[in-house]
Amino acid sequence: MSAAPQDAAPLLKVEGLRQHYGGRGLFGRGDVVRAVEDVSFEIRRGETLGLVGESGSGKSTLGRALLRATVPTAGRITFGGEDITAWTAGRLRALRPRMQMIFQDPFSSLNPRMTVGGIVAAPLVIQRQGLDRAARRARVIEALATVGLPERAADRYPHEFSGGQRQRIGIARALVMAPDFLVADEPVSALDVSIQAQVVNLLMEVRRRLSLTMLFISHDLAVVGHVCDRVAVMYLGRIVEIADTRSLFSGPRHPYTEALFAAVPIPDPTLRRPRVLLDGDLPSPLAPPSGCAFRGRCRHALPACAAAVPPLRAVGPGHFAACIRDDIALAAPVAA
């Protein structure tokens, strides 16, 4: 974990962000997918925020919205003190070098027809840094060295590399512009276990060396616990709990967080335990249930849970949860 000063100014601030999809087509109306609903949080400079949730929770959509890959439906995104919510592509262009992304799929994120050198140099070319060929090459080699790849990698094509190496190439591309802020969208979940740790360690090392601020999106709570200073848990487009990592791991306050922890399989056959806490699937984001979206799967649901969407409220220092119940004891993976 990186030591982020508690009083540092937020680099990124999100208020009431909504991202909806669909709803209008050429012929007739489509359904509206509420991928992100009323999300607010901030990330301090130098901090790593983990974003955890199952597929369909809206975590990837949120990550992309922060980078203004999409036009938010509502809400406000403030980056480095400036409101970038409505910035045009032209204006965003100057900001792009400061915010970069690492993708999940190391096969689809690299252009198969470009050499690795071309891929890593692309940000420099696009941003018209006024570098000549040799200077660009030097920057590319430097970036490749940072991620542990040799110079000769620059002249080869992506398919000549393994999944882990390709993920390193993606990281080199993100780092070549020396960004302040990085969104890592499931950066290790497509990799083999023995390779995952290599890439996580690399990310933690470059984060420290370049004092990066990071949003680390993952469905793997164990990896998130390892990498992040704070963790936000998403369910059906909303943040249901957000807290410092230790606080969350030692005392989750939302039943969904507890269920996520319980579902992580532990590689110890002597510890077999019944651990299915959740029935059913994520409800459809086309027609979310009234009130708390989680209540249909929740062991602790009350009739009152259907009344209104529970707001995030403070349940401890820096610890917020969107659950109306204070009277339930939830299991934690780590002792307080």
Binding site: A69, R96, P97, Q100, D105, S109, P123, I126, M177
Partner: peptide, 10 residues
């Protein structure tokens, strides 16, 4: 994703 990657580079 490489298309999005390029767009995110500006």
């Amino acid at each position: 994703d490489f298309t999005l990657a390029a767009e995110l580079m500006g």
